[in-house]
């Protein structure tokens, strides 16, 4: 029973971490993607194949 409680607590931890990581990554990707798309600079240059 203790192992079961342990597993469900770990499952809850996974859910919390996944939610936090998703929010952070999506927001940061949105900002970076906007900068890459709209601003031209030597530092933002990416290969044409990307």
């Amino acid at each position: 029973m203790a192992a079961l409680a342990d597993f469900f607590r770990a499952l809850g931890n996974s859910a919390i971490i996944t939610a936090q990581a998703t929010v952070i990554a999506v927001f940061a990707s949105l900002l970076a993607g906007y900068a890459y798309s709209r601003f031209r600079s030597r530092w933002l240059a990416v290969p044409p194949s990307c």
């Binding site: 971490i17 996944t18 936090q20 990581a21 998703t22 952070i24 990554a25 999506v26 940061a28 990707s29 949105l30 970076a32 993607g33 906007y34 890459y36 798309s37 709209r38 990416v46 990307c50």
Partner: peptide, 23 residues
Amino acid sequence: VLLAVLYATFFVSLGSFVMRTFI
């Protein structure tokens, strides 16, 4: 927080290119 930031950091590079394509 540590794991969330680590996972996000490793995915922002790919995510940026996906978002750039959409934008």
